[in-house]
Amino acid sequence: MKYLWASAAIAAAIVGTSAAQADTFNVTIEAPTVQNSTAGFSFSGKETFNSRSTGNNQSFVTDFGTGGVITGTYTGVDILAANQYGGAGGSGNFASTATTSGFSLSLSTTNSEGINYFGFWLSALDSGNTLTFSKAGTTLFTFTPSDVLAMVSGLPAYFGNPDSPFTGNNSAQPYAFLNFYNVDGTFDKVTFSESPTVGGYESDNHTVGFFTEQGGTPIPAVPEPATWAMMIAGFGLVGSALRRRVSKVALSHA
């Protein structure tokens, strides 16, 4: 199975903005329209949010369908019904936040190996979407919108909602399943935040576990830092989409 090791360009961007990071994370992207991980695991589970009630600022505990092997506590998450911006498969519910504080997912497991993998269906990426991994209160790794754009820019198959009844909607923003592998150790918390607040951070099919085989494929010709820096600087020129009374900056692609 092919996998994407963090490129020099992406690593440079991460180090430049998050000096406190301590662990190496390999990040891979699944093929367009694939909304679940192709990684291999010794144990894993998935939260689809479809059994949750819709509403804002919710907190709840889930076992990701593992029968108690994994315990996850969500704090401050908005649960929304599927729309053009989120909802794997075009139905059910999805997780979202539109605040700089965002929502957190605290993780624990009865398995001695710990948790070293997190993956999710990222939909309608905007310039405020930020993902942070931590352990015992220490930040290990931060993934930013510029990193995702560097991976999918020039690949139009990743842009726009792929699912009926919203097929083709929101065509200026990426939709992709991302895998995060901590190759140095484990983590116990994942935080989704919207900073700056330009829209919402939509996600679904949250998958956690201990990976044994990395899935996903590399994206060729990742731009150098100066290239994607200019892309990010141009976010405000691309236009915006009205979302829940918040303007959401669109990402351009070739």
Rank of each mutant, 00 (worst) to 15 (best):
F41V: 10
L122M: 15
A157K: 11
F120A: 11
G65T: 03
G128W: 11
G90Q: 06
A233V: 06
N93L: 03
Q214K: 15
A172N: 13
F177G: 03
Y181Q: 02
A226Q: 15
S101Y: 12
T191R: 09
S96C: 14
V69N: 08
T142P: 00
K189R: 15
F211C: 02
T97E: 05
A98Q: 09
H206V: 15
S240V: 15
G72F: 01
K135D: 08
F49M: 07
I29H: 05
Q21W: 11
E194I: 01
G90C: 11
T28K: 02
S153G: 13
T186H: 08
V152M: 03
L131P: 00
I219F: 08
I219A: 14
V190H: 04
E213W: 09
S59R: 08
I14V: 15
A95K: 01
L131V: 10
T142F: 04
G168S: 04
F43Q: 00
Q35T: 13
V15D: 13
M1W: 14
E113N: 15
T66E: 05
G128P: 14
N170S: 10
V69W: 00
G76H: 02
R245Q: 13
T197G: 06
P156W: 12
N83H: 04
T109A: 00
S164K: 11
Y158C: 06
W121N: 07
K2V: 10
Y3V: 08
D78Q: 03
T17S: 15
T62Y: 05
S252K: 06
F187C: 05
F120H: 12
F187A: 01
I10Q: 01
A124N: 08
L242H: 06
F159E: 00
S127V: 09
D78Y: 06
F235W: 07
T130M: 10
F49Q: 02
I115R: 02
V15R: 14
N57D: 13
G200E: 09
T191G: 04
P156M: 12
A233Q: 13
I115H: 03
L107M: 09
N129G: 10
T132A: 11
G200N: 08
F180N: 00
F25T: 00
F103P: 03
G68Y: 10
H206S: 14
A22E: 12
W5L: 12
V238K: 01
N56R: 14
N83F: 03
V77R: 02
P223K: 01
G154L: 07
